[in-house]
Amino acid sequence: MTASPRQLVLDLAHRQALGAEDFLVSNSNAAAVEMIDAWPRWPHPASFVAGPQGSGKSHLANVWRLRSGAGIVSAAELSDTLVASLPDAAAIVVEDIDRGIADEKVLFHLLNRARESKLSVLLTSRVPPGEQEFHVPDLRSRLRALPMVEVQPPDEALLKAVLVKLFDDRQLYVEPQVIDYLSVRMERSMAAASNIVADIDRLALATHRKVTRPLAAQVLAAMGESRE
C-alpha cells in the first residue's frame, strides 16, 4: 500500500494570545480573576497567586501586567538594582517564587517598598508560601500574610472551552465529539491543550486530513509515546 503523501509543513510559530479577552473563566480560576479585577483596590499592595504548572498563572499575570502597566521578572532574576529603579506607585510581577529566588533579601526589601511606596506587586508560584522554605528570617511569614488565591488545574468545562478557542484561533473546524474525546483523555493543563492543538493542526495539514477523532487519537498516542 502506498503511503499517503505528506505536505511540506513550515514550522511557523503560532502567537499565543495572552490578553484579558482570551482568558476563559471557570470555577477553577474564578477567585483569581476576581482578585485581578479588584486591582487597584487591593487590601494589601502585594498579592500572591499559587497554582500548578499549566493552570494559567502566567496568562493571568499577563492580564494584570497589561492592566497595571507592570514590569515582569522571574524571582531567579530579581535584583536590588531592579527594585531600586522602581518609581513610587509602580507595579511589578515576580514570577515563579518556588523555582528559586536570586536574593531573598531583595524580595523582602521589595515587599517593604510595596508598603512604603505604594508599589503594586503580584507574585506567582506553583505552591503556596507556607509550603516553601526560606533562609531570610520572617520572609515566609511575610509572604504567608499576603492575600492569596489558588488557581486549580482546569476542569473539563474549561478544557473544552480552551480547546475550542485554540482550534478557532487556527481556523480549524472541529466536531464537538472530538473536543469531548480530547478533554477526558488529555493532561489537564493549558500547556497540554496548546501542544495538542498545535500537533493536530500540523498532522492534519501534513496528511491533508480533517480533524477527526481518529486523527486526535493518533496525536494523543504519539504524545504518550514521547512522554514515555
Rank of each mutant, 00 (worst) to 15 (best):
S141R: 09
A75W: 04
V178A: 04
D98W: 01
Q152A: 13
A50F: 02
R142H: 07
Q218T: 10
Q177F: 12
S141F: 09
P129N: 03
R115T: 14
D168Q: 15
G19P: 04
L123E: 00
F167M: 06
W42I: 01
V178H: 04
I179D: 03
D199H: 12
P128D: 03
L163I: 09
P154F: 01
L220P: 08
Q16S: 14
L205P: 08
D103M: 09
L143E: 00
K105I: 14
T212I: 01
Y181I: 05
P128G: 03
E175Q: 15
L215H: 00
N112E: 09
R188S: 12
N62G: 08
P147S: 06
K210C: 12
L220M: 10
I179H: 01
G54D: 03
L24H: 08
A84D: 12
H135L: 14
S141V: 09
D37E: 14
P129D: 01
S189H: 00
F108C: 05
L119P: 04
V151M: 08
E133T: 14
I97F: 01
T81L: 15
Y173G: 14
A75G: 05
Q132S: 06
E104K: 01
L205G: 08
G56M: 02
L122K: 07
A102G: 10
L203I: 13
A38K: 11
L8I: 14
